[in-house]
Nucleic acid binder design. Structure first.
Length: 482
RNA sequence: GUCUCCAUCGUCUAGAGGCCUAGGACACCGGGUUCUCAUCCCGGCAACAUGGGUUCGAAUCCCAUUGGAGAUGCCA
């Protein structure tokens, strides 16, 4: 068997749906695991949907996800051009060949479908153009009459094919319609361009979503009409989303963030996203879940692909993201998290390293960082009831009693470091034979105003600085004595 | 409507006739460690859609039912 060649053929819509990215990932994985080639082809046959810079988004996404292509618009491999709009004349030629051989026909009634009424399966059958005399049709075309080219399907036959994931599939041709191959604007439809390009680019494995399963016979009929070899099909289970009512359907925007860029801007790491979607519909057949791209390529087998649709679970993505975050070296974490912190230009900027240290294993998604540290910038309004804490035996009364002395002790610290601060609080407790947790809680609440904070009183106060910390304690005292 | 596909814990999945009193992970709930929280550790809850076959034996094979999804565009 010849070299494995897979392709990813996105249309430039301006964003990368994670389902699309997963398709790319599996195509890439298949090529890499077999030592084959991965080709990028841009499917821009829908002029109405053209989006500026969309191709750049595709490059950027693939790069960020680590999916390197061997051939593409920017990397000629001898099968170009790799952008369909630049192959326009090619499709017309092939479509004409099909007309000549009787496998396709010109259609002049743009309204075939609409006029056919309720039974759509008879739409094309009713299309008068299918039975039009070839010479007459050619004449109309020559005269410049607007038209499309439709595939002529032999409705008496039954089509059978084998999918690498779903196995044997049989469909009666009579339910297939005479799909349009070439649109009125002379652009091919996706279905037609795919067949032509996949053949011309020697694609051996067509990896795509299972939504194409039922239209695959139409593709095969085209291959047969040309006398071409049919590629191996690898149809992927769909990625589903659950809506507010609990219904599942193909993952779309109504289900939340579904584009790669979106997820990244919310603070998910590209590596985590890729790892997560790799496991949506594919299993390494082991209990392992964390994989680098190379490890995935190593473990990838078509037999691990699943048939049933998979629901995209944001909770599990969060968990996986947190695993990747925790695995980051401290300085990498600080660097990656900074853009999300929202502290540039504030007094906290130079304390970032310290803050990041506290945040590191408390962060699942970067976007949740600002709210975790907002109390450092401005202390929130809080009630004295917050000083109540059963486990450490703290309450507003004993806090009011203890705080003045604690404040003096803290004020006496010469080197304002977390460990020194903690030491002062601990020895305060030791002398009085109370739990260390009590002054810890009292002071932490006084300086933060939050029941939950990243880090304890020592760390928080070091970041706040001596002056601000004491000022916050003074304010707490006023509040407690009010 | 018609066609196609799918069917194991709430979710992602392991399981290719006996290894299954069905394993792992997320989520959830307990407990431990800890200066709050988190991390970390330990434990728990929780599934073979239903009904028929086949077989000594079925989550695994067959059929039906039910449920779900996809397709049915001059979108991809």
């Amino acid at each position: 068997m010849s070299e494995v060649r897979t392709r990813f053929a996105p249309s430039p819509t301006g964003f990368m749906h994670v389902g699309n990215l997963r398709t790319a990932l599996y195509a890439w994985l298949l090529a890499r695991s077999e030592g084959g080639k991965f080709i990028l082809r841009i499917e821009d046959t829908d002029q109405a949907r053209y989006v500026e810079n969309a191709v750049e988004v595709i490059y950027a996404t693939l790069k960020s996800a680590g999916l390197s292509h061997d051939e593409g618009p920017d990397k000629d491999g001898g099968y170009g051009p790799y952008i369909q709009s630049e192959r326009k004349t090619l499709y017309r030629e092939y479509a004409e060949k099909l007309v000549a051989s009787g496998h396709a026909y010109y259609c002049f009634c743009g309204k075939c479908e609409e006029e056919s009424g309720d039974d759509i399966h008879e739409a094309s059958e009713l299309c008068p153009c299918a039975g039009m005399d070839a010479a007459a049709a050619a004449e109309k075309v020559a005269a410049g009459c607007p038209h499309v080219i439709r595939q002529r399907i032999d409705r008496s036959k039954v089509s059978t094919f084998t999918d690498a994931v779903f196995g044997e599939i049989q469909i009666e041709n009579k339910v297939l319609d005479d799909q349009i191959l070439l649109k009125q604007d002379n652009m091919p439809t996706y279905n037609f361009a795919n067949v032509i390009d996949d053949h011309l680019m020697h694609i051996t494995h067509v990896v795509r979503g299972s939504e194409y399963l039922s239209s695959t016979p139409k593709y095969n009929l085209l291959y047969q009409a040309f006398g071409w070899e049919v590629p191996t099909y690898v149809h992927l289970p769909l990625i589903m989303g659950r809506d507010a009512e609990g219904n599942v359907s193909k993952l779309s925007k109504r289900h939340g963030s579904v584009s790669f860029e979106n997820l990244v801007s919310e603070g998910y790491l590209p590596e985590a996203i890729v790892n997560y979607i790799a496991l949506l519909g594919w299993s390494p057949k082991s209990d392992r879940e964390i994989f680098t791209l190379d490890e995935l390529a190593q473990a990838f087998r078509i037999s691990g692909l699943n048939k049933s649709p998979a629901v995209f679970d944001y909770d599990k993505l969060r968990w996986m993201n947190s695993e990747y975050i925790k695995a980051l070296p401290p300085e990498k974490f600080a660097e990656a998290a900074l853009p999300f912190a929202g502290i540039t230009g504030t007094v906290l900027e130079e304390k970032w390293e310290l803050i990041a240290g506290l945040l590191h294993n408390r962060t699942e998604v970067f976007s949740e960082i600002p709210e975790k540290i907002s109390f450092l910038l401005t202390q929130p309004e809080y009630q004295v009831e917050l000083f109540n804490h059963k486990k450490s035996k703290s309450d507003p009364e004993n806090t009011r009693a203890d705080l003045p002395e604690l404040r003096e002790l803290l004020a006496g610290i010469s080197e304002w470091k977390a460990e020194n601060i903690s030491e002062v609080l601990s020895s305060f407790a030791a002398v009085r034979e109370i739990k260390a947790g009590r002054p810890m809680w009292q002071v932490r609440i006084a300086v933060s105003g939050c029941a939950v904070t990243p880090g304890g009183p020592g760390e928080i106060m070091e970041i706040l600085g001596k002056e601000e910390s004491l000022a916050r304690i003074d304010r707490a005292l006023i509040k407690l004595n009010a």
